[in-house]
Amino acid sequence: MLNNEAILVLGAGELGMAVLRNLARHARHASGVSIAVLLRPSAMGSDDPAKRKELGELRELGIEFVEGDLTRQSCADLATTFRRFDTVVTGFVGGPGVQLKIAQAALEAGIKRFFPWQFGVDYDLIGRGSAQDLFDEQLDVRDLLRAQTLTEWVIVSTGMFTSFLFEPSFGVVELATHTVNALGSLDNAVTVTTAEDIGVMTAEIVFGEPRVSNQVLHIAGDTVTYREVADTLERALGVRLERHVWTVPELKRLLAEAPDDTLRKYRVVFAQGRGVAWDKARTFNAQKGVPLCGIDGWVRDNLPRLRAAFPAP
């Protein structure tokens, strides 16, 4: 059991909140473990009712607020903030160079263990030069961490957030037209995990014994083909769905028409099918016997919303 450890989580977005809740749950059974969250000044002073509710929840959990801005602060400033913590868990922050800056600050601070923002696909397998150019920076972060021995690191590969698979803007599930658009092939697979389950497993890893360090771990709520996604929705909704395939050449052509479109970049990567899916039976959560939410469970939990979005033909 982890004891006498100061943990900092960077941000309190959807995933950050899930991580914080689960870390706090573990910390209740540990000795001398403190948890803090880095928040922008604007977030700490927000008048938004939802944000105020979240901040109130964090206070009730005994989580310390640390002021900072990952985008604007320099590497040296971030290192100063990180220095009093043993473990830093990174949240998502957009913008070229930000994740690399955070990793450099963590190493400069000399923290014991670092969880970079790698809660997604397997960047090693995808490799450099993919359609999503931001993935190259994720590989830069991995190279930086692997080239040193002072700070332990843990990378948690989770696949796509389950909810994103159903996000209208992503275009795989077109709720209004009763269509599932398969990326590359109906038999292409994708690994998905809910934000809540990522929080559960991240906390399990942080507090777990034997201590996890210098490893890439894979977790999965589910690994499904696009055909299985369509079948699952049909069973749950009682609605016949059209199945359409966006081929790799077609998606590349669409990306060429709008080369800065982030979603079109993602579609090409997932359509190519490399590094975006892994065997659920061989994951860290399977090894530990921790059940996570699969596609069937997610659809069942979100059935009212899905029914509302799938109007009768």
Rank of each mutant, 00 (worst) to 15 (best):
F284E: 08
V37A: 04
G273W: 10
L186H: 04
L125F: 00
G275P: 03
E137Y: 04
W153K: 09
A236Q: 01
A24T: 04
W117G: 04
V245P: 06
V245N: 05
Q148E: 06
C75G: 07
K252C: 02
N3R: 13
G32N: 08
S213L: 15
G94C: 09
S42P: 02
F65A: 06
V212L: 04
R240T: 10
T81I: 10
V154R: 05
V276C: 03
E64T: 03
I205E: 07
V141L: 15
G13V: 02
R142I: 14
N214M: 14
S42R: 08
L139N: 01
A220P: 02
P116K: 06
S74R: 12
G110A: 15
H244G: 05
M44Y: 01
S42W: 12
G273D: 02
K265V: 04
T158A: 09
G273M: 06
I198T: 13
F166E: 03
F82R: 06
W153T: 15
G159P: 03
R146S: 06
V248S: 02
P311I: 12
A76E: 15
K112Y: 13
Q148S: 10
K53S: 06
A106S: 07
D261M: 09
V299M: 00
E242L: 09
V190M: 08
A79S: 14
A36Y: 11
G289H: 07
R305N: 02
R253V: 03
R52D: 03
E167L: 10
R84L: 13
A6W: 06
V89W: 12
I205M: 10
Y266E: 05
T193P: 03
R40V: 14
L165I: 11
E209I: 11
M201V: 14
L58Y: 04
N285F: 03
L55G: 00
N4G: 13
T158I: 15
A6N: 13
K53R: 12
Y226P: 01
D197P: 03
F207T: 09
D301R: 03
N3Y: 10
A309C: 08
V98I: 13
G97R: 12
R113N: 11
L150F: 14
D231R: 04
V93N: 12
I295K: 00
E108V: 11
A106W: 15
S169H: 15
T149A: 15
N214Q: 12
G294K: 00
E60I: 09
A258L: 09
A147G: 13
E234F: 01
G275T: 07
R264W: 05
F166C: 05
F114E: 00
T194Q: 00
R267K: 14
F82V: 13
I126E: 07
L237S: 01
